[in-house]
C-alpha cells in the first residue's frame, strides 16, 4: 500500500537564490525503508520537513496515505501529522519530564484539547507505553527524568514517542549523528525492527553511506536540492556516490568496511 507520494516538491527559503529542494518526487510503500544521503546542504532536512509541513513548501504535492497534506487546513494538517512520526538528531525530549511523560506526548494529537491540556492519557495507552519501553530495555527508566539518560537512551525514548502515535510513516532526520558507534547501531536496529514489525514506512536521513547501505533497501541520493539517484541500495555504485557527493571516493570517508565496490 502506498503510504507517501511526493511530486514536484519545491522549496526556496526566503532570501535564498537557489531552491533548497527542487522538483522532488518519489513514493513509498508500507514497511519500506528508504535512506536519504547527500552532502551537507543538499536539502535532506528540508525535504523531510516539507513532508509534515514543519517547513512550508512552495510547490508540489505531498500525499500521506492518499490524503493531500499540502494545501490542507490547520485541523487536517494536525490530523495527518498524527500518522507521521518524527525522530530528531537531538531527540528534542523535555529534559525535566520523565521518560514516560515524554513517550506519552506521542498521544497528545489524538486527544481532545481539554484532555490534552490536563494530561489525561487513556490508561490502555499508558500500559502500551510501558510495554514498549520495557521491550526496548528502558523499563527501569520509566520515572527517570529524560535529561538524565545517555544520548542513545534518549534517542530510543524519542523513537518510542513517535511510535506511540501509531504512525504509518516515520521520518528520521540524522537519528544517529550525535551517537557513539555502539549506540548508533542499537538505534538503527531499533528503527528497522520496529518499522518492519509494524509495516511502517521509514524515511531516514543519514550522513554515513555505509549505514544507509546496511539498513535501507532503497537509497535516495540528493544533490543541490534534486534527487539524482533513487534505486535499490544494492545498485548504488561508487560512481553514483561520487556524483551525489561531488567528490572522488578517495576523498570520502564512507565508513569502516568498504561496502562499496
Amino acid at each position: 500500500m502506498e503510504i507517501l507520494n511526493i511530486s514536484g516538491l519545491t522549496k526556496t527559503y526566503r532570501g535564498a537564490s537557489e531552491p533548497a529542494v527542487r522538483d522532488v518526487g518519489f513514493a513509498m510503500d508500507a514497511g519500506e525503508m528508504v535512506g536519504v544521503i547527500g552532502s551537507s546542504g543538499a536539502g535532506k532536512s528540508t525535504l523531510m520537513r516539507c513532508i509534515n509541513r514543519l517547513t512550508e513548501p512552495d510547490g508540489g504535492r505531498v500525499l500521506i496515505e492518499g490524503r493531500e497534506i499540502t494545501g490542507a487546513g490547520a485541523g487536517a494538517v494536525r490530523e495527518l501529522r498524527r500518522r507521521v512520526g518524527m525522530v530528531f538528531q537531538h531527540h528534542n525530549l523535555v529534559a525535566r519530564l520523565t521518560v514516560l511523560q515524554n513517550v506519552m506526548h506521542g498521544r497528545l494529537g489524538y486527544m481532545s484539547t481539554a484532555a490534552g491540556v490536563f494530561g489525561r492519557y487513556p490508561e490502555e495507552e499508558k500500559r502500551r507505553a510501558i510495554e514498549l519501553l520495557e521491550k526496548t530495555g528502558l523499563g527501569e527508566f520509566l520515572y527517570r527524568r529524560a535529561g538524565e539518560l545517555s544520548g542513545g537512551q534518549m534517542q530510543r525514548v524519542g523513537i518510542m514517542r513517535a511510535i506511540m502515535q501509531r504512525p504509518a510513516l516515520l521520518l528520521c532526520d540524522e537519528p544517529i549523528a550525535s551517537l557513539d558507534p555502539a549506540s548508533a547501531l542499537v538505534v538503527m536496529e531499533l528503527i528497522r525492527d520496529i518499522c518492519r514489525e509494524r509495516g511502517i514506512a521509514c524515511l531516514v536521513n543519514l550522513h554515513q553511506v555505509d549505514v544507509a547501505l546496511k539498513f535501507a533497501e532503497r537509497i535516495v541520493g540528493m544533490r543541490g536540492g534534486e534527487i539524482i539517484y533513487d534505486g535499490p541500495a544494492s545498485e548504488l555504485d561508487g560512481e553514483t556516490i561520487e556524483r551525489i557527493y561531488g567528490k572522488p571516493l578517495s576523498q570520502l570517508m564512507i565508513g569502516g568496511g568498504a561496502v562499496v565496490a
Binding site: N52, R78, V84, M86, G106, G116, A162
Partner: peptide, 8 residues
C-alpha cells in the same frame, strides 16, 4: 517535536 505529533 510536539507539533510534529499533530498535537494542538
Amino acid at each position: 517535536a510536539l507539533k510534529a505529533t499533530g498535537a494542538g
